[in-house]
């Protein structure tokens, strides 16, 4: 159980609140986030425990039963869950991975996200992110850590014109302000 946030009555505060840039950019409110680290030997057990296939290629998203796992590296997954699932998910992993060879760290409050959507979304992202967003290079379902100007970011392509962008909370104002400036160049 360790450091897990339990259900509580208090409202969460978000660095993003009320700071949507334009219609194309909406904050992702709430939700629990975990960094899950596993050795190769634990992947299938953890997949079964979570009900989400974790053995997807590096830089791919996998979702099932309302739970999403973004495989950011060979031994690293970013879990995106509803807040209510935080405690049960931690418990089931602890119960099933009996050798303790894994790490689950709560990062729900470490980062915050927005969903970017629209036809010019890849133009806007390329204002600060050096990756190629051609569908052949960055297909739907791809998720990776990368950089946006001077901030670390995680980008997950949910559809051709829809991206989920996660950044650390103290970098969020910087990234949102930049997105606002860049998006003016590609006005809808």
């Amino acid at each position: 159980m360790d450091n897990l946030v339990q259900t509580k009555p208090m409202p969460r505060l978000f660095p993003l609140s009320g700071k949507a840039i334009d219609r194309r950019c909406t904050p992702v409110n709430g939700g629990a986030r975990f960094s899950l680290r596993l050795p190769a030997a634990s992947i299938s057990t953890a997949s079964a425990a979570l009900g989400v296939e974790l053995a997807v290629p590096v830089n791919r998203a996998s979702a099932a039963n309302g739970r999403t796992a973004l495989r950011l590296g060979p031994d690293e997954w970013l879990l995106l869950l509803s807040e209510a699932e935080a405690v049960p998910v931690a418990a089931v992993l602890e119960a099933r991975l009996t050798d303790g060879r894994y790490s689950l760290a709560d990062i729900s409050h470490r980062q915050t996200g927005v969903v970017l959507e629209g036809t010019a979304v890849t133009d806007i992202l390329n204002g600060g992110c050096p990756l190629d967003f051609d569908l052949a290079a960055f297909p739907v379902g791809m998720a990776t850590r990368t950089i946006f100007c001077k901030a670390e970011a995680v980008l997950w392509r949910q559809s051709e014109g829809r991206f989920h962008l996660e950044v650390w909370r103290s970098f969020a104002p910087y990234v949102w302000n930049l997105l606002a400036i860049v998006s003016r160049e590609y006005a809808v």
């Binding site: 505060l13 204002g127 600060g128 100007c149 001077k150 901030a151 909370r169 103290s170 970098f171 104002p173 910087y174 990234v175 302000n177 930049l178 400036i181 860049v182």
Partner: peptide, 15 residues
């Protein structure tokens, strides 16, 4: 480029 003024680099603030 965009890196000027308050956007020269991220200004991190605590909660």
């Amino acid at each position: 480029g965009y890196a000027r003024g308050e956007l020269f680099e991220p200004e991190r603030r605590t909660a």
